[in-house]
Write a protein that binds this DNA or RNA. Structure first.
Length: 308
DNA sequence: AACCAGGCGCATG
DNA sequence: CATGCGCATGGT
């Protein structure tokens, strides 16, 4: 037997203002996300790199992340490391964001409370779009439940250590499915149709992360995405912030964002667009991060307010 | 037991 | 352009 000299472990440096624990906590929060498994000090995640299925375990080392390949063969280590860096959003200096946060008395606490939290990404644009379509209008528990059914039904299984993991389905796999199959999983007829349409568009190569990245502005990307049926302003912004890390994206209309601003800043339950703009104004270039941090506030009770 | 969920497209006035 | 409606089903 030929010894395999290929490395099974890769390393990538972490930046300042980074907390692996905060990031892991966010991944784990209140839901059962089928796309990863959280251990006390690591995350196990099935991913596809250069078209090949991998199962990776990511943990923290000394000023670096440790990427252990549990299953699969790494043919493009650079792409693997890039994926992990996008997942944890490692290529960004958070200092300016914290500086702005601290100028806002009601938001300043987040810089301390969530110190080092990064905008946890969904590097695969197709997965990000599917997830945002699934999450439209329904509560998150149900959304995660729908995602589990979709992934278990269509995704390629990957077994390791007595546990079955699943890759997120490819555009080809989703494109090939009949709407009735998704209906049986309790998707609405409309969502089934949207997902299949988006999958076909990806499978045909008409849209891709690379194509979007080549566009000159966030507005152009949003226009490109909202041209697809089922992708509105909220969905486009959500996918762009989670997948392409477009920093200026705000998922307007997001109920979670409203709830967070209601709790933290006393905004009305359904604030006018202008009220949002007023708050996001000084966070120019950090809108996506502010949104993400505000979502983070929804996962734990806020500290009790002090009543004078 | 209503009412609302990390919206959207389409039909009306 | 603005407003209203159905969607599928689980949480609260």
């Amino acid at each position: 037997m030929v010894p395999d000299s290929r490395p099974r472990t890769y390393y990538t440096p972490t930046p300042l203002l980074f907390s692996f624990r905060e990031c892991l906590w966010f991944l784990d929060r209140n839901y059962d996300d089928i796309m990863h498994r959280i251990l006390p000090d690591a995350v196990i995640k099935p991913i596809r790199i250069a078209g090949r299925p991998l199962l990776v375990k990511i943990s923290e080392g000394h000023q670096q992340l440790v990427i252990e390949v549990l299953r699969g063969e790494v043919t493009e280590p650079v792409a693997l490391i890039h994926y992990v860096r996008e997942l944890f959003d490692l290529d960004l200096d958070l200092a300016p964001f914290y500086t702005i946060l601290k100028t806002d008395p009601e938001l300043a606490f987040m810089a301390e409370a969530y110190f080092g939290l990064r905008l946890m990404g969904i590097p695969d644009l197709f997965e990000a779009l599917c997830w945002s379509i699934i999450g439209q209008q329904i509560n998150l528990s149900f959304a995660y439940s729908l995602k589990r059914r979709l992934v278990k039904t269509l995704g390629q299984p990957l077994d390791w250590d007595d546990t079955r993991y699943y890759l997120f389905p490819t555009p080809e796999q989703v494109a090939a499915v009949e709407p009735e199959v998704l209906r049986a999983l309790q998707f609405s007829g409309r969502k089934a149709e949207y997902l299949i349409t988006v999958a076909r568009t990806f499978a045909a190569g008409e849209i891709s992360k690379e194509k979007l990245l080549a566009l000159p502005s966030a507005e152009a990307m949003i226009q490109e995405l909202t041209a697809l049926k089922g992708i509105g302003e909220w969905t486009a912004n959500y996918a762009l912030m989670k997948s392409l890390k477009v920093p200026t994206c705000i998922p307007h209309g997001d109920v979670g964002l409203y709830n967070a601003l209601h709790a933290v800043k006393g905004l009305p339950k359904r604030p006018a667009r202008a009220e949002l703009e007023a708050i996001f104004g000084k966070f120019c270039g950090w809108q996506a991060y502010l949104t993400f941090y505000l979502w983070r506030t929804l996962s734990t009770p806020l500290l009790p307010k002090l009543h004078p």
